[in-house]
Design a protein around this nucleic acid. Sequence first.
DNA 1: CGCCGCTACAAAAACGATTAAGATGTCAAT
DNA 2: ATTGACATCTTAATCGTTTTTGTAGCGGCG
Lengths: 358, 358
Amino acid sequence: MGYVEFAKTIKQLTQEAGQPAMVSMKDIALRCGVSVATVSKALNGHQDVGSATRTRICNMADEMGYLTNSAARALKTNRTYHIGVLFVDDRRSGLGHEYFSAVLNSLKEEAETQGYDITFINRNVGNKPTTYLQHCLYRNLDGVVIACVAFNDPQVLELVSSSLPVVTIDHVFNNRIAVVSDNVNGTGALVRHVFALGHRRIAFIHGERTAVTENRLVGFYRACGELGLEIPPEYVLEGVYHDPDRCGELVQTLLRLPDPPTCILLPDDFSAIGGLNAIQKMGLSVPEDVSVTGYDGIHLASVIHPCLTTYYQDTTVLGRTAAAKLIELIERPKTALLDRIIIPGRLQEGQSVRYLNL
Amino acid sequence: MGYVEFAKTIKQLTQEAGQPAMVSMKDIALRCGVSVATVSKALNGHQDVGSATRTRICNMADEMGYLTNSAARALKTNRTYHIGVLFVDDRRSGLGHEYFSAVLNSLKEEAETQGYDITFINRNVGNKPTTYLQHCLYRNLDGVVIACVAFNDPQVLELVSSSLPVVTIDHVFNNRIAVVSDNVNGTGALVRHVFALGHRRIAFIHGERTAVTENRLVGFYRACGELGLEIPPEYVLEGVYHDPDRCGELVQTLLRLPDPPTCILLPDDFSAIGGLNAIQKMGLSVPEDVSVTGYDGIHLASVIHPCLTTYYQDTTVLGRTAAAKLIELIERPKTALLDRIIIPGRLQEGQSVRYLNL
DNA sequence: CGCCGCTACAAAAACGATTAAGATGTCAAT
DNA sequence: ATTGACATCTTAATCGTTTTTGTAGCGGCG
């Protein structure tokens, strides 16, 4: 039986069985008259394989539809080309949040183009509860991206202090790579923007106290300081991210002050909607009576009415960078710089901030 | 060296190395004075192991922090406890869409509680481009959930017609399990609802032609028929999902008709915002002058003003069911019913539809 | 007593790849 | 001719499981 006939037979067999009848290196070796070792080397680009043999093997591999068995490779090399992603979605602040799903999507794409797949980390192995770290070890993950979680969770800390390559998003740990959105300058940019439009009485409703929030507060106070603004303490309130109702209430609180602000910075675009509603409910309108800004720059911001002045966080670069840095750390641990990488965003002007005649 | 000392040593070693120094069945076997085979059986609950030995082995496994090596198990058993998810996010209609991220999240949780991890399917293996199917085979995925893709993509069809266990969401294939949102009754419910409120001139802006859209059209025309409504063809327009601008334009088109509708059904909540804006831009208001409904019942619908009357799609049940059905198909292929499962939603009344005095 | 059947374990062969170490052949230099 | 260097390929061990087959011991039964 000649070469071509044999190939046909193989295909027919696989067709018939309905199963793709996984072809292994052994099969290729058999057909090429070489050893499995040679096949492995040829396919992996090692140098001690003759160029004629190499092309013969590679062609045969294509011909036969060879696919690496990832489990076997992982077993032998301890490399899975799988990176874990830890996103927690309590109260819809994880995947449900457009910011994070956009970051995730970009992260996914970068990882995939580099040959890595992503998988979610959770707290069980088989049907037994475990820790995040154990789950990662069980799956032999090459590395982990952590985002959108309670970073003081003991299980998260265990993961961060493990020997696994880790990249965190929007939170900085010592001696770990962190990719963070530029919350300091982002908030600062908003302050300076509304200041330039004449606003002096600027209030800030921020989210729950997290690393992100701390940075936004720093950005806020620093910018105000540089502009010579004295912000009364009652202008700075703790709200809740992604909670239009709560933020709406706080907006009303602010507007009922004896000396109300002319502009209110809200924790994010979504909760800004609550602000808009609350203001409208008081018979006032945006931006004529009160100005408002959001944060995030999600699609929503530009389609609501009035569309929001906000600070766009570059989710694409954030996700891509996180993936790229993690892979760098995995593949070249010696040279990877353990540092904090700040991703700048961009002020996005809408119609929610009025020009104030001074 | 006694038992306790030995245990300590192990722990110290792993601490020092910084590496968790994976302990294998071999280590347990050594310490328990049994063979690896026995360890394997004990840990996997086989019957031919003495109960004393069994508990000794299990305790030791816990003690030493044993974790199954998933790669080795996968290699031997061809089961990875990994299910693939195919979500495509062209033009932000995948993960960026709250509907799908909610489905994904629910799917993830159900899979995880059953001991399965989820991973995204893409089109490369290593750094070479391949098909979705090849990717699944390369990763030895136990099964696949397909959602939110162009279901006529040849690569998707290849996957669907492969021998892999497959569950599709919102699209039905022959002899495959499909989990679909009840678009027929959902749209019907909206029609009946606005009819009950007195509306007779009801327009429908639907999304691009997909299986989902077809069902909604069926639901629309069927309900209208049952109610004895004659819908003029110019009342039914093809819009674009998740596109407020385009849908806004179409709303204006409808309202400029000589005999405009009193109520407009929009393709989803997000694009309904475009409808609201467009109406406002014409100097009209919702619901006083025109009534509007959305679809999806995402969080947004209830926070905008006026909040939307919409049809809530039960993303939680959708995702959970998809995962559960897929796992059933994987684990009990003989008894799993290859069928279409319809997940009902719920009409969610807002303030965007007015009561019309007839 | 001898045999059967049972329980409880061990031995060993896989799964499919990687890789160190060894083998072979060729050719140039001595 | 011998040697070494080099290129090219093979052998064989190994990763950590699972699973088939084998076997020792023991009690019961005719």
